[in-house]
Design a protein around this nucleic acid. Sequence first.
DNA 1: AGAGTCATGTAAGCTGTTACATGATTCG
DNA 2: CGAATCATGTAACAGCTTACATGACTCT
Lengths: 189, 189
Amino acid sequence: MALRHAVLAALLDGEYSGYQLAKAFDIGVANFWHALPQQLYMELARLEKDGLVAGRQVIQETRPNKRLFHVTDAGRAELERFAADVAKPSFIRDDLLVKVQAADRIGTGPVIEQLEERASAAEAKIELLGSLLRQFRGDMDEEEYLRTGERVGPYLTCLRGLSFEEGHRDWCLRIANVLRERRTTRAER
Amino acid sequence: MALRHAVLAALLDGEYSGYQLAKAFDIGVANFWHALPQQLYMELARLEKDGLVAGRQVIQETRPNKRLFHVTDAGRAELERFAADVAKPSFIRDDLLVKVQAADRIGTGPVIEQLEERASAAEAKIELLGSLLRQFRGDMDEEEYLRTGERVGPYLTCLRGLSFEEGHRDWCLRIANVLRERRTTRAER
DNA sequence: AGAGTCATGTAAGCTGTTACATGATTCG
DNA sequence: CGAATCATGTAACAGCTTACATGACTCT
């Protein structure tokens, strides 16, 4: 059970509905965990049953009703326990890298295109994370915020996301160039 | 079915047994896909049944017998098809980042320790990848190898792995320092 | 003598994805 | 008027992890 702790950690800063959580898992939380909305609804139900989160119904008139969840003391204790035991190594799974591994044994055209699309997507995410980080730290500069800010957890994970996306973008562009040049060279032979 | 293509891509460069593949999935292939040996044995059986790989028995005297697999023409065609259709976005799942997200709401001691262990592990992987890359390119320098080398796919994915590990190491060390300084500051209050 | 490597699998259980299901409101 | 947003779930299926099972050889 691993999604469980990601949900608890994401829910530490206030009340969220399943729907809002799903959006968080698409932006900031995506830097350390990926999950689909269906999974979140199921996990929230399980967490509530186990007493690690509690929800309250909010009746809305112009919108469907929703349930807002927060972490209970038992939930915080569970996170504490989780933080202390050994972490599994992180792992990557990426279709595009599989394609690159095969790149010079198959047609490179579509792979080059996808590398460039990925680079654009990474660029967009970089900008998104940049503004998220600016929002977090307000008027402070980064060093000051990291020393004195109230809540730095989400800031730190976004920093990792930012560096990941930058590395990803640079690699995609470089590899796209390498493959394109190799294609030209071959065509000339 | 996603592991399937990772196995095909890893198997492009010759014959491997399940056991050898498992080791590859622990080093170079780990840069784009993670899988346990059990999964590989199962996947190889399925791939063989579907005619995408073929295996031949090798009888050994001082070692248990083994089966060496290679990609068939049908397998190569399947990879080609795979490379052309849209790639799912890559995603990360990392326990340690979950802990960092929660960091200033729980005890940071164990998290700092784990960050430093991770940094060492990343460092070890960086060295491993460095020597792998040197082995690949022989006497050539990187640019020359990327322009003229016979088979650059595995080199390119290792480059991504290298940059990922470097980013990971740097982040771990920086975050460990940030959390440690915040702890000291709090203790002084 | 004990640990590690070589070598291959099965089975149970847990996790994650895809497809299905519904329906009002708001924005362009 | 169509698309996106808000809002929550169920069910079937596919994929992954953990535990079990075996056994010889080599290195320290």
